[in-house]
Amino acid sequence: MIFTVTFNPSLDYVVGLDSFREGAVNRSEWEQIYPGGKGINVSMVLKNLEIRNIALGFVGGFTGKEIQRRVKDFGCYTDFVKLKSGNSRINIKIKAAKESEINGQGPDISKKELGQLFKKLESIETGDMLVLAGSIPTALPEDSYENIMKFLENRSVKIVVDATGELLLRVVKYRPFLIKPNNHELGEMFGVTLNGREDIIIYAKRLQEMGARNVLVSMAGDGAILVDENGNIDEMKPPVGVVINSVGAGDSMVAGFIAGYLKNQNYREAFKMGVATGSASAFSETLATREEVLKLLEKIEESER
């Protein structure tokens, strides 16, 4: 079974405007509301790819109920911890000539409620996969990811971590199965500017030396680089398409990699599936569907012939 964890899920309220005028009344041209959070995005894309999974995390108040309802209606299994007080956050995303975002803080999470999440994690068994995605809210200890990985380290669970900066550097010693920084985040982690492919590979290998098994570095329109645990270095350009919405593309790449890996445990095939799935979400107004992914996967495979 695959489990995803989203510590701070949200309702994302997306507003489209012809133009945004600061300090004035603005009227929307269109609006959308959908559940947000990196782990939830991974769960929803895995569902689209017909991979069963369970979404874990914390939800609170009327917004938390709506997040859970929408994720369930999408067809995902959920087992969220229900918070006794506070509301899950609302993120406002303004789509105008320039895109702007206002992200909420999220509710407080008590030590007892964090313990309830660990109770749910007890059901994870040898051979299962766990995805830890996104930042840790200020209400929780900074070492929450580390504590989860320590809690599971003797169960041979494949753990995927999609996080940034110090948070990611702190967990690599627990040998995560996969980490997915982008090229900018990779440079920031080591306080350097990466100048091209060779630099990316050098620092991806550095993360392997620190403990990560497989390092997938996304590079937006320039594609991605995979440094796998077998010593292989793979680079792939994305298929041609028009980028409509980059939100969720990185999460989709993670979901695609997992789906590809589960098929035959081949890293090259997982990599191709990851690139196709991330691109499919970037080329769409919503998260990638199975049909969209398979079409792009075929394009990638045709270009290799």
Rank of each mutant, 00 (worst) to 15 (best):
F151G: 03
Y145D: 04
K84C: 05
D108N: 15
D128W: 04
K119R: 14
G57T: 14
L114D: 08
F80H: 05
V172F: 03
K119C: 11
N87F: 03
V171Q: 05
P137C: 10
D162L: 12
V59Y: 00
D108Y: 06
E113S: 06
S85Q: 02
L114K: 14
E188Q: 15
R69Y: 08
P107N: 10
E66Q: 09
L132M: 04
E125D: 10
A163S: 15
S85V: 07
G60T: 07
I148Q: 08
R175I: 01
I109A: 11
F58R: 08
A97S: 11
K95M: 14
F177L: 04
L140W: 12
G115A: 14
G134Y: 00
I136M: 05
G127N: 14
G86M: 03
N182K: 06
I94H: 06
P137I: 05
I67H: 02
K120T: 07
L178Q: 01
I67P: 00
P176Y: 08
M129L: 09
L130A: 01
L121A: 15
G75K: 08
P137F: 08
K112V: 05
H184Q: 14
E166H: 04
E142Q: 09
L140P: 02
V71I: 15
L178V: 00
K84R: 06
T63M: 14
V160G: 00
S110K: 12
I94F: 13
I109W: 13
P107A: 09
K120R: 15
G115M: 11
K95G: 02
T126V: 11
P107E: 12
F80I: 05
P181Y: 09
Q116K: 15
R170F: 03
E125I: 07
S135H: 09
Y174H: 11
F80A: 01
E185Q: 13
K82F: 07
G86N: 01
V71P: 00
Y145H: 15
K112L: 08
N87R: 03
I67A: 04
V160I: 15
P141T: 06
K95N: 14
P176T: 05
E166C: 03
V161E: 02
E99N: 14
G104F: 04
S110R: 10
Y145V: 12
F177S: 02
S135N: 07
L168H: 01
F58V: 05
K111V: 07
R175G: 00
R155F: 00
S156T: 04
I159D: 01
Y145N: 02
I124F: 01
R69N: 12
I92K: 11
F118H: 02
Q105D: 08
E188T: 08
A96W: 12
L140I: 08
L121S: 11
I102W: 14
P107D: 08
Y145I: 10
T78L: 03
E146K: 02
L186Y: 04
D128H: 13
S135L: 08
V172K: 05
R70Q: 13
R155Y: 14
S144W: 07
V171A: 02
R89P: 00
K84A: 11
I92S: 07
K173A: 13
L117H: 04
I136V: 15
N154F: 02
I67W: 03
P176Q: 09
E101F: 13
S135A: 10
F58K: 09
K173P: 01
K158G: 05
D108F: 11
D143W: 11
V160E: 00
